[in-house]
């Protein structure tokens, strides 16, 4: 019995000395595990008390618990001391030195704008679909009410790969392709972003390769007023909550009635260089889907109607960010690309 009591004292003394000599927190942690851990010396000893005669158990228990509490206290005190006396770095930082920035790239402005446009339309209930860049004459023209030798073919100049195959001149061929997949289901609401190709001018406002986003809705009872509602929502989310839109009669073979859609200029009608003093910026073409196109898509124009719009992604990006030359987007000058960041700036 006495022997056990002495063991406890000895252990305590041994631990106390080690604690005193410890110089860092890791040592202190090791000491704690050595004596008080699950298989620590004092723990093991305490566990063996059960085998002692009942009459000495209370006394031994008290001694052992006191020892345990003592060590815990010593450990805690020493820990506090060590923490307090932790070495203070002597050299002050020059906090104005540049930090170590992580290396992060950027999306291309056309991707940022496309994504923002997609998100606006997704929010309005439109689903994103993609189409082919190489198309047949049928889907690019004929199905869209532009037969061979139609004067509207002269509105655009196409890159042909063979007599019947060409690089699409517009995202509109997606219209008939998707309608044929989905008809007669309604509602159909899609946006189709993608590359389009036109042969001809290559200047500050024309690129032989550019991007469009097609908008198409087909449902029972859709009207031009609905088209105007959706486009107004788009204009405001893209260009600001105070924008107005204006529809002017125009002509596209695949819509009727057709409209050019202008958004009020950032100068609020004062007239500036951007809008050529008119107060309006032309942003897209739109219209009610022509009955011929609905029929080509497998819908009956007597029962459903639809609206469609084609937006130029570069055009939107140029207006939104004041870019004066479409070719900047394709030259990929890194210093130019570095200017673009998705900072919202939309009004979502």
């Amino acid at each position: 019995m006495v022997c056990l009591e002495r063991d406890i004292e000895q252990l305590t003394e041994e631990a106390r000395r080690l604690i005193e000599e410890a110089t860092d927190l890791a040592q202190l942690d090791a000491i704690r595990i050595q004596y008080l851990g699950r298989r620590g010396k004092l723990t093991v000893l305490l566990r063996s008390l059960g085998q002692q005669p009942p009459e000495v158990r209370p006394r031994l228990g008290r001694v052992a618990n006191e020892a345990k509490q003592l060590l815990q206290r010593l450990l805690a005190d020493k820990r506090q001391m060590l923490v307090k006396s932790a070495k203070v770095p002597t050299e002050a930082y020059d906090v104005t030195l540049p930090g170590i920035s992580p290396l992060v790239g950027r999306r291309h402005p056309l991707s940022l704008v496309r994504r923002q446009m997609e998100e606006i339309f997704i929010g309005l209930g439109f689903e994103v679909v993609e189409g082919r860049e190489v198309e047949t004459d049928f889907y690019n023209f004929v199905a869209l009410n532009i037969p061979k030798d139609h004067p509207a073919r002269d509105m655009q100049s196409s890159f042909y790969l063979s007599e019947e195959i060409l690089l699409r001149t517009q995202t509109s061929p997606v219209q008939v392709r998707v309608m044929r997949e989905r008809a007669p289901q309604v509602p159909l609401r899609i946006v189709a972003p993608g590359r389009v190709y036109r042969r001809g001018d290559d200047d500050a406002t024309h690129s032989p390769v550019f991007h469009q986003m097609e908008l198409l809705a087909v449902d029972v009872g859709l009207s031009m007023a609905h088209m105007k509602g959706v486009l107004l929502d788009f204009a405001r989310k893209m260009f600001g909550p105070d924008r107005k839109i204006r529809l002017r009669p125009s002509y596209f073979p695949f819509t009727e009635p057709s409209a050019e859609v202008d958004v009020s200029c950032f100068c609020d009608g004062e007239g500036c260089r951007l809008c050529d003093g008119t107060g309006w910026l032309e942003i897209l073409g739109a219209g009610m889907v022509h009955p011929v196109v609905l029929r080509n898509g497998g819908y009956d124009p007597e029962y459903v109607s639809g609206f469609a719009a084609g937006l130029g992604i570069e055009r939107v990006a140029m207006l939104k960010y004041g870019v004066d030359d479409i070719r900047h987007f394709y030259r990929n000058d890194l210093s130019f690309l570095a200017c673009f960041e998705d900072m919202g700036g939309g009004w979502m």
Binding site: E118, F121, I122, G123, L124, G125, F126, E127, V128, V129, E130, V186, P187, R189, A217, D219, V220, L222, S223, M224, A225, H226, K228, G229, V230, L232, D233, I245, R246, L247, R248, P249, P257, A259
Partner: peptide, 22 residues
């Protein structure tokens, strides 16, 4: 055309999303 009002379409909700590939 300026006398055509702007209305939001009313219709069935569909799952508008980007397809997995996009």
């Amino acid at each position: 055309y300026d006398r055509i009002p702007a209305h939001r379409p009313v219709g069935a909700l569909v799952g508008a999303f980007r397809p997995e590939a996009t």
